[in-house]
């Protein structure tokens, strides 16, 4: 813990870099997962294949995936962001599909019968109702992404992982611990924040 106290500016700067990686990856991942999940929710034959493929992708060890991506994309933040986007798909798409499928069928029938277009039905009824479940997926994906983003330190991008890998290489345990603890704190804060947001979105439905 001493390292945290003696190098607050460095840890803070790495934490911000870490958060930037996570935010960019999650924003792109969500922009991909939302339409994918909407399509999959309405296509019961296609969705098991999609979810299965994304689950398989999720089981690939992150260092192995990153090694492959680095060969394609070179060192730096890009392969890390791509890996994070790929990993997050499973949790995000699953959340969107489960959320939409869970919407009260009577509300869907009523909306269709009252003259909502399919798009209006999705935007004005299904997605607002599915929001708490979708946010649940976002929360899990965020925590996982924060943890996996430490690998950025291994391929030359700045993140809290930089402390962990430098600590390992330099046999500086305090550095390693500082990186790990800071990462865990980020994850805990993100989890708490998204939990609160999920509760708020649930309250809107009561």
């Amino acid at each position: 813990m001493n390292y945290l106290a003696t190098h607050p500016a460095e840890v803070l700067s790495l934490a911000l870099a870490h958060l930037e990686l996570v935010a960019i990856a999650l924003a792109i991942a969500f922009a991909v997962a939302l339409p994918l999940g909407i399509v999959a929710a309405g296509a019961s034959r296609f969705s098991p294949w999609l979810i299965g493929a994304l689950a398989a992708l999720y089981t690939i060890p992150s260092l192995a995936l990153l090694a492959v991506l680095v060969r394609w994309l070179g060192l730096g933040a890009t392969p890390v962001v791509v890996a994070l986007i790929l990993y997050a798909q499973f949790m995000l798409v699953q959340g969107v599909v489960t959320g939409i499928r869970g919407v009260d069928p009577a509300q869907i029938d009523a909306a269709r019968g009252l003259g909502f277009s399919e798009r209006q039905l999705m935007v004005r009824v299904a997605l607002p109702q599915a929001t708490p479940v979708i946010l649940g997926g976002v929360r899990i994906a965020t925590v996982a992404t924060i943890s996996i983003a430490t690998l950025a330190g291994y391929v030359g991008a700045r993140s809290l992982g930089t402390l962990i890998f430098n600590g390992l290489t330099l046999h500086q345990n305090q550095m390693l611990v500082a990186g790990s603890v800071a990462t865990a704190l980020l994850a805990i804060c993100a989890d708490a924040g998204l939990r609160a947001l999920t509760r708020l979105s649930e309250a809107r439905l009561r």
Partner: peptide, 17 residues
């Protein structure tokens, strides 16, 4: 057409949000 034709069902299906 559906906007010109009212529709009410047993399960009601009021929009909860």
């Amino acid at each position: 057409l559906r906007r010109r034709v009212g529709y009410a069902i047993q399960a009601v299906g009021l929009f909860a949000h």
